[in-house]
Nucleic acid binder design. Structure first.
Lengths: 230, 230
DNA sequence: CAGTATCCCCCTCGATACTG
DNA sequence: CAGTATCGAGGGGGATACTG
């Protein structure tokens, strides 16, 4: 029995302090982010979280499961005895609760930091796009979008029932394909470039079903507006 | 020159990762919480954050100022050469962005943890009440409420222009006084007790101007409903 | 694949003592 | 009051080896 570190706690009776007792340690919220994109296996997590050690990851997963944020289960659809981690209902609530913090960070990161393609994954951007749009998607929308941001590819599945993000290229052809340079994305999120401008100048290329593209543009515009604080 | 630790960074191009690079270290978000209640001096912060070392606090304040989250200034209204820390505009945005996380924590803390009066400060509760009510306060509301939760006392100032929280008893008589046992508060926030029930049973006592009390009850009810996730 | 088990180094944290 | 200086303990992180 190792790894059973007695967790350090603020020991205050305050919602924020308690939240930080649970998810305030290093790497923990990034694990939640990865699982918010979709269920993942141990090695997939270890890959996504470059820099974390396998030992520490195991400890965090144990803590998160004990705290009821994530659930361990066997993936029946995958080969072998593969274990899959997924967010619990409480974990999903947490993932939603963290969105405003992520938006605050995005706002300031894009303004301050130089974009580095090596450190970027398209699914992070899409997780952000997908978040909370569930409630106001256009009626009857059902489309798959493939995004190519620099070297990173991911897909956004929008349908009335909900949204889904998958890393990598789509298996079946997407309804529309969106391509942009990382710099363009940075400029958009940083507020230095208007979406309309990016489209007319061809910096952001959207090809495919025109109705699907139009719906997506609406969603993106809504999210970009949400970046500007009230 | 000490304390100039090279900060560890996730180095990912992701809003959440960047937010955590800035405020993910131990104590940092609790410092923001304290300043969200109101401007504070160094020793007031050290007192409020029981357990933090003075050295570490100094380091954190330096980092937060460098990152543009807080501002240092001289308090002209206070005696001596007193320095006061306050949130910057970015810091205020951050404080707002963190509310959902605090609510998530409150929801689970009240459900799981035994209330310990020693570890509770009424101003934490009021900061939570005051957050984001700014936009939908009743017209012409202008009242001061004194809260007595167990041994802890704090005041909530509601007026059309905004809200303010002050620790300790009010200097001038409050328009209304609210008193409750910690257990009552825990039951309310944990969803095990209805506000109406608490009032009729006398578990939550509200005395003073009846219009002011009615307005407050409306605000509290709105916040309690917000605890239940969609 | 999904982890556990070590070893080692260093940084971080917490506590205390001290200073202008 | 507003910090700086110092030091000990331990947690975090990388590397690697090993297991079912």
């Amino acid at each position: 029995m190792s790894g059973m570190a007695t967790r350090r706690s603020y020991g205050q009776f305050c919602g924020l302090a308690h939240a930080l007792d649970v998810v305030g340690e290093r790497w923990t919220l990034l694990i939640v982010r990865e699982l918010a994109i979709g269920p993942k296996r141990y090695t997939e997590l270890a890959d996504a979280l470059t820099g974390i050690g396998t030992s520490l990851l195991a400890t965090r997963m144990r803590q998160l499961e004990a705290d009821g944020v994530i659930e361990r289960r066997l993936a029946l659809d995958k080969p072998g005895s593969s274990v899959v981690y997924d967010l619990s209902e409480a974990g999903r609530e947490l993932a939603r609760a963290v969105i405003p913090l992520a938006m605050w960070g995005a706002r300031h990161q894009m303004a301050d930091v130089e974009f580095d393609e090596e450190l970027f994954r398209a699914e992070w951007l899409l997780a952000f796009l997908a978040a909370d749009v569930r409630n106001d998607l256009p009626e009857g929308l059902d489309a798959v979008y493939e995004f190519r941001i620099g070297a990173s590819v991911a897909a956004l599945h929008l349908h009335a029932g909900g949204t889904r993000v998958t890393p990598g290229p789509t298996e079946t052809p997407a309804d529309a394909t969106i391509a942009a340079a990382p710099e363009t994305v940075a400029a958009l999120v940083g507020g230095r470039l208007e979406l309309g401008e990016a489209l007319t100048q061809g910096l952001l290329q959207a090809d495919g079903d025109s109705a699907a593209v139009a719906a997506l543009v609406g969603v993106i515009e809504k999210r970009l507006r949400a970046l500007v604080p009230a």
